[in-house]
Nucleic acid binder design. Structure first.
Length: 210
DNA sequence: CGATGGATCAAC
DNA sequence: TTGATCCATCGT
């Protein structure tokens, strides 16, 4: 019975990326001695021939050895290495065979604060421990080895617990050079852990003709 | 703002 | 094979 409930939980993410992002915002991420409230996310879609074409998504050019998790069932962890240094974590959404994911951009530590502090270094202020997708993975102990992990499996070292949806602020995604104005970044307004918005310097200038 | 770092992918 | 790009972060 419990497994059915957990299955239902994963099914809650078998929806379009924006709807999945709304369900993950305010959820709790548990793993490796820490737990944290997700306060900022970004939705990403798939290839041009899919239901949500998204040139900014890793899945845009089709499945490959790196991004195959995005094409799999909902509720799996998709990790990738950014700029050769940082690990970033997504949660796959949509149905099996359809690409979609939600990037976890920032979280507020609820437990294991000292563990996260040790991972990040003493000079980092508490609100900044899991601010930014790379820092979030660092603080929670998520690595590239966690790629493909089932976040709804009670045996997983990293899990997610969905909660009631909360009102979300929304705006354009950070750092993307394509589809830069699509408002697929969601966050909890007023949270100090939310990262500052910075447009990609490579993105075309927004319409400034007026 | 620039430097950094390594994987990835589109070209040659 | 080379070169540009990338869902970033930390410094000045």
């Amino acid at each position: 019975m419990k497994a059915e409930l957990l299955g239902v939980s994963a099914e809650l993410l078998a929806v379009d990326p924006l709807a999945a992002a709304r369900r993950l915002l305010g959820a709790t991420l548990v793993g490796r001695g820490t737990s944290a409230l997700i306060v900022e996310v970004e939705a990403y879609g798939g290839p041009a021939d899919g239901p949500w074409p998204d040139p900014a998504a890793h899945s845009f050019r089709g499945p490959g050895p790196r991004n195959w998790v995005m094409f799999g069932p909902a509720g799996r962890l998709y990790t990738y290495r950014s700029h050769g240094i940082h690990v970033c974590a997504n949660v796959a959404c949509a149905t099996d065979g359809v690409a979609g994911a939600v990037l976890l951009r920032a979280a507020a530590l609820e437990s294991g604060l000292e563990v996260a502090q040790r991972r990040r270094g003493d000079s980092v202020r508490p609100a900044a421990l899991a601010r930014g997708p790379g820092n979030l993975c660092s603080a929670l102990g998520i690595t590239m080895d966690d790629n493909g992990l089932d976040l709804f499996d009670p045996n997983s070292e990293i899990q997610v617990q969905l909660a009631e949806e909360r009102p979300a602020a929304e705006g354009p995604r950070v750092g993307v050079s394509k589809a830069a104005d699509r408002p697929w970044r969601l966050w909890l307004a007023g949270r100090p852990e939310v990262s500052l918005y910075r447009r990609s310097p490579r993105a075309p200038a927004p319409d400034q003709s007026d």
